[in-house]
Nucleic acid binder design. Structure first.
Lengths: 187, 187
DNA sequence: GAAGCTTTTTGACATATGTCAAAAATTAAA
DNA sequence: TTTAATTTTTGACATATGTCAAAAAGCTTC
């Protein structure tokens, strides 16, 4: 919990009153490896802060699982599309390791956003950061070769390679597992 | 201007006081076809609302121009990365048609965000929508074939095909112009 | 440590898409 | 209109990456 409160203050300044309000709004969630935090078809009604552990978001395409994002320590995770629109999720969220999360429901968050301008600001700034991060990933994914994508991963987020099976990483990069394996063997 | 104010109220409810404050904060900008709204290397200090016209964001990669987004009526446009971080832009923004825009500077916007919770909310909600839109485009771009991408464009945003040269659309879809041309001839 | 899973690597081959260059077609200018 | 410039299409060919199947390597667990 303390880790979450500390992390939030990286986004913007929070008064002690706001911090106090926040404290009561999150619930601890502990899950073990391979469990699903979210099933496709269900509406995702919570936003999670990942204190410890790792997870992945994936969906099914022509019978294949496509992993399109990972979450690690200090990430906010949810099925954003479902959480924001209230529509059923098209993706699943699965634990890659035993993890500790802090959950806040959409209703609780909405209440905080209404009552605390500071929370509204924090969330706005968080979205800014998540937006430009996604934009960068998008541009890379679309215009770089498989080898370049792997090298970027190796330099920018090497911990992914250490904590996630290769098959998941391949689809995260948008390439086949065999291609990824071959790229690795030639470096 | 009226169009902008009306559009803003699609995101969230605004009091008449807030609307009044907003009115004085935007400046009208009129540009003609092919002009640059932003040059790469410059810091983008404004957010623009596109009232009428069309434009594209592009950057240079190995001597080639990569168009990675388009803006049309009622879009908010800027180099988000540069605008948010204050770093020099890696992209250019060019007018595809003569256009009318409304500009707000980052300082002015920051002032509004601080003084009006309603504006903070509006921007937070705008980011939510832009975020999930980008996420959807990302997933499509990475896991669909060139033909599927073109068909999506044809169904979801046919106006792009009518208003933008094919070469720009090809790089927007992440495929070569020749491939796009061939796909078109076979439908 | 042997047996049984799961994950990763290799091999052979298919194919979608890219590249380069030239020809058509379209649009703008004179 | 005629000419020039730009945009789009076609053709021939190269190549990166995908697919399917099997072998190898790495982990569990009994």
């Amino acid at each position: 919990m303390q880790q979450l409160l500390t992390h939030l203050q990286n986004y913007s300044v929070l008064s002690s009153g706001t911090l106090e309000s926040l404290t009561g709004c999150f619930e601890k969630v502990v899950l073990s490896k391979n469990e699903l935090l979210l099933n496709e078809g269900r509406v995702c009604r919570h936003l999670y802060f990942l204190e410890k552990g790792a997870l992945r978001g994936f969906y099914n395409l022509d019978g294949k699982e496509i992993t399109h994002w990972f979450g690690f320590e200090k990430d906010f995770v949810t099925s954003f599309h479902s959480f924001i629109t209230g529509e059923p999720a098209v993706e699943n969220i699965q634990l890659l390791e035993g993890s500790i999360l802090w959950a806040i429901s959409k209703e609780t968050l909405t209440g905080l956003l209404n009552s605390h301008h500071e929370v509204e600001r924090l969330v706005r700034i968080a979205y800014e950061k998540y937006y430009i991060r996604l934009e960068e990933r998008f541009v890379n994914a679309q215009f770089k070769t498989a080898k370049e994508l792997y090298e970027n991963l190796l330099h920018q987020t090497p911990y992914i390679l250490e904590r996630v099976p290769l098959g998941f990483i391949a689809s995260y990069l948008g390439i086949s597992q065999e291609t990824l394996s071959r790229i690795r063997s030639k470096l």
